[in-house]
Amino acid sequence: MAESPDAGEILRAPLTIGYDFQRTTGPVIGAFFTALAERRMLGIRDTGGRVVCPPVEYDPESGEPLTDMVEVGTEGTVRSWSWVSRVREGQPLATPHALALIQLDGADTSMLHVIDAADPSEVSTGARVRVRWAPESVDGFGNLVCFELAEGKG
């Protein structure tokens, strides 16, 4: 039986497939992003009176649309965390950091974000953190660069 023609060395190359999706935000996330550009944090009050941050569009229990946005603090308390020692491409920080659930002052829920710390020994549940803002206003969530450790204990 005849052989297939010789291909020589089989080719190999990097292939990048990407697209800049344009997403409309809707009123709730739009207001949240607008506030970030103003260096403020907003949550939203659910039908049970709790403040949810980051804000959600519908009540987690009843599914009712929510409309009452409230300003919360730019400092908060670490509720849970883990250490990212090997940083993958596309993460908010290029250096090892903590990935944490952070409850901002005035909010009743926690948000997932990163804490810029030199070593895991610096981070603890209950530690106080504050927002580090982007030096210049950017698109959407990018205004919130990360959290950094603050003094005190929550």
Partner: peptide, 26 residues
């Protein structure tokens, strides 16, 4: 929605969200 007064920044209505996958293709 009711939003507490801020700095009067123009309301964000859309954002660009890049999504990229890098393959090692043979």
């Amino acid at each position: 929605v009711n939003v507490p007064d801020g700095g009067g920044t123009e309301q964000v209505r859309r954002v660009t969200v890049p999504a990229t996958m890098v393959y090692d293709y043979t």
